[in-house]
Amino acid sequence: MPNTHAGADMGIGAETDDPLVREHRIKQQAAQELRRDAVVRIVRQTVTFVVFLGLLAGLYTGYKAFGQAIDDRQHDWAVVGSVLPRTDDLNMPPVGEIFGQFLETPGGQNQIYVKILFDEALFTLREAFAGFMVGLVIGMAIALALAQWRRIEQGLLPYVIASQTIPLIAIAPIIVIWGRKNFDVFPWEWQDWMSVSIIATYLTFFPVAVNGLRGLQSPRPENQELMDSYAANWVQTLWRLRLPASLPYLFAALKIAATASIVGAIVGEISSGVEGGLGRRILREAFNYTTGPDRLFASVLGAAVLGIFVFLVVTGVERLVVGRQDRGATA
C-alpha cells in the first residue's frame, strides 16, 4: 500500500454516508468519464476521416479501372470520357503514384518532394497567417465601429459587402506592383509575400466583421442594463460582456476565414508571380503536367492538407478559449 489515502478510499466503499466523500467520488468519476469521452471522440473522428479518405481513393481507383476496362478512348461513352474525365494515367494518375510522388526526389533537387511541399506550405502559411491576423484586427475594428455607431453601420456595410465582389485575381498583381513601388512608408522593407498577405487579409476581414458585429450585438438588453446598473464604462462593458458574448460567433467566422486565407494566399501567389509558396508550386506543376501529372495532384493534396490544418488549429484554439460549445448569456 503506497499511502494511507488510497487505503482510505478503498475502505469507504460505494455505500458511504459522508456526502462530501460521496460528492468527491462522483466528481472524480465524472472527470474520468469526460477524459475517456474525449479520447473516444478523437479516435472515432480519426477513424472516420481515414475511412472517408480510403473510400475516396477507392472510388477514384474504381472509376479509373472501369474506364480502362471499357477502354474509354475507343468509345465515346456518354459520361465516361466526356463529362467525367478520361481515365488514362495522364488524366488520372494512379493513387499509388500520386502518393509515391511524395517520397521521390524531383530532377535537379536534393530533397524529397514532400519536404519541398512542406517548406512551400510553410511559406504560404506565413503569408496566410500574417494576412489572417491583420484581417482579424481590421474585421474586429470594423465590427466595433459598426456596433458602436448605428449610422455607420447603415453607411459602411454596403461598401464592406461590395468589397468582396472584386475579383481577387485582378487585385493581386496590382497589390504586388504597388508594394514594390509605393509601400516604402512602412518602417520595414516591403516583401512580395506581404502583398500576398493583403489578399488573405482581404478575405479574412469580411466574415470577421459581419459575424463579429452579430456577436457584439448578441447580448440581451437586460445584460446591457446590468452593466449600466454597475455604471460600467464602455471598455468594461466591451471586455466583460460584448467580447465574450461574441466569441462563438467570431470563431464561426474564423474557421471560414482561416481556410479562405489559405486559398487567398495560393490564388495571390499564382496571379502575382510571388515565388516560394504552394501557389507557385501548383502553377509550375500545371505547366509540366504532361511530363508529371502525379506531381500536380500531389501538390494540390498538399494545399488541401494545409487548409485542414489551419481549420483544426482554429477549432483547437476555440476549445481552449470558449471551453464548451454554445456558451452565451443565459436568460
Partner: peptide, 19 residues
C-alpha cells in the same frame, strides 16, 4: 446614485453570464 453604485438590481430573468 447609479454612478456611486448605491443599488443592486435583480431582473425578471437571472441574466447571468454563461461563460
Amino acid at each position: 446614485a447609479r454612478l456611486d453604485r448605491d443599488y443592486g438590481m435583480a431582473f425578471q430573468t437571472a441574466g447571468l453570464f454563461d461563460w
